[in-house]
Design a protein around this nucleic acid. Sequence first.
DNA 1: TTTAAATGTAAAGTCTACTTTACGTATAGT
DNA 2: ACTATACGTAAAGTAGACTTTACATTTAAA
Lengths: 78, 78
Amino acid sequence: MIVNKLRELRDVKMSESDTSEIWTQEGLAKRLGVTRQTIISMEKGTYNPSLALAFKLANLFGVKIEDIFEFRGDKSES
Amino acid sequence: MIVNKLRELRDVKMSESDTSEIWTQEGLAKRLGVTRQTIISMEKGTYNPSLALAFKLANLFGVKIEDIFEFRGDKSES
DNA sequence: TTTAAATGTAAAGTCTACTTTACGTATAGT
DNA sequence: ACTATACGTAAAGTAGACTTTACATTTAAA
């Protein structure tokens, strides 16, 4: 199981920048090359994105993958 | 596109440990909870594993995800 | 030279990340 | 009140990660 801090990180970015449409779900989706639905699903948190998408997110937010995603191996694996 | 150092890392582990069957493709697959085919596909390199699998690998090898996988965003994205 | 362990390949099947479309709600500006 | 923007939800479809099975090749030890 994987948990993430996507929503928190995005909220910070939105409050920081005045050109805020860059960090909306849609703006983020566009820059990642995915759909808004994918962002929504990720923020809801119960799924396991691809490594490529995780790398792109980390790059956009300027952090490491481990700063966004946390792996909890304990429960029913995946 | 994602490239990885899986094969090199595994080779090192195999030469280091005398109970080497732990680090064979099959041993590794078993401990990861995937099949040997998945390991082979990853070592061939042309695919994009899930974040969960990347985390498990990093844990087993005792390194960070970024030490195994490198993201090359330049080419045809994914 | 035979045997077994480790690796390689190929092809069809399953599951789920991700897409597409469409509609619904909340909020703020005019 | 009306409009536009950002967010939420649901459902069916596509693509690719991962499985399953089966067989072939390499390597080293007995």
